[in-house]
């Protein structure tokens, strides 16, 4: 049995979805409850900027991978060859 490794990409995208939701929750909190001053905007800017950088670097590496590669996780599992020779009398 084998499957393409882009199945792992689906799990990563689910993670990204929830990460985005919590990121929006965090931005909501600082916009709603923070003072309208330099530090509030600077903190927000740093978070968004850092997130963009991390996502860009991630995309750069992910785009280089061939996600259609098949993987067989159970290959060889049912191989009955023993590590040592067995003789029957």
């Amino acid at each position: 049995m084998s499957f393409p490794i882009y199945y792992f990409l689906f799990a990563y995208l689910v993670f990204l979805f929830f990460w985005g939701v919590f990121g929006l929750i965090a931005l909501y909190h600082i916009i709603k409850f923070g003072f309208p001053n330099f530090f509030t905007f600077f903190g927000t800017f740093v978070f968004i900027g850092g997130a963009i950088i991390l996502l860009s670097v991630s995309y750069n590496y992910i785009a280089q991978v061939d996600w259609n590669t098949e993987v067989s996780p159970f290959q060889g599992l049912l191989n009955v060859n023993t590590p040592f020779p067995v003789t029957y009398k």
């Binding site: 490794i5 792992f8 799990a11 993670f15 590496y61 996600w67 590669t69």
Partner: peptide
Amino acid sequence: YPLIILAGSG
């Protein structure tokens, strides 16, 4: 390698 990329990014 792809799994390492995804894990590191996450």
